[in-house]
Amino acid sequence: MFENLLFPFFNGLIWALVISLVALGLCIIFGVMRVVNVAHGELYATGAILTFIFLQNYGLNFWLAMLAAVAIVGIICALLEKFIYRAYEGKVSATLILSIGLALVLQQINLIIFGGKVTIMPAPLPGAISLLGVGFPAYRILAAGISVAYLILMWYFLYKTSLGLSVRATMQDRDMAAGLGVNVDRVSMLTFGLGGVLAAAGGALAAPIVSVHYLMGADILTISFIVVIVGELSLKKAVMASFVFAPLENILSVFFVPIIARVISFILMCIIVAVRQTGLIAKIRRSE
């Protein structure tokens, strides 16, 4: 029994790390710009697809391909903020509609450049390592390591640099930050770019694990939203929530059909939110 649960649990941890990256991106975009970025799943998919294309068609090794994909997505997002979103910052319905448009465009572009196929990307690091009597794919361990590295980099940036401080200040209180001299426009551009980078990185890292498909962003979008809400908009709590959700879903998948496992996980997470709801509403009121 233990061995049966160990592998899903381990997979859950990897999945949690990927979700953390993506959810972190969603969280900072939401926190800084108050944008409900429904195109986030598409950014994740684009990260995976571009990595695949650079790998396959241009012969780059996986790491360069990932770097290129992530950089492209990040730059595009930064530009999108400046030229499209900026005029609507703070207006939830307007930015939602812009994001829906962006999601549709990105989704179709992904379909055009990648086709409708479902492909498994070859693992950049083949083989398996044996731990506690169970064999774990070496790539997944590496991907976990890289995700952790990304998270540490993010933590360092946000908590140890002055630019990161500006980002956090803007997340806390945009007007106050502007009043204190923070260039909130530049922060927004950086944040959207960074959010895109995180989503694309999640997609690129996940690509050899899950299958690459132009609609692969759909699932991770809702999961990220749930994680962000359970995390009550706090970055650290969003990461923690990912580590509650992913293993939960993976373990439930042993007993239920994956879709049902996901639904049950969603509902359980919603219950957690409902139980702490008064705290959340007070925090929203205060941040307005």
Partner: peptide, 23 residues
């Protein structure tokens, strides 16, 4: 709920509906 939470809630609910209907 506040606007953005309303949006996110509708998204989560429709996905739950979709997953259940598909399953």
């Amino acid at each position: 709920m506040e606007e953005s939470y309303f949006v996110i809630t509708t998204i989560i609910l429709v996905w739950i509906g979709y997953y259940l209907a598909m399953n």
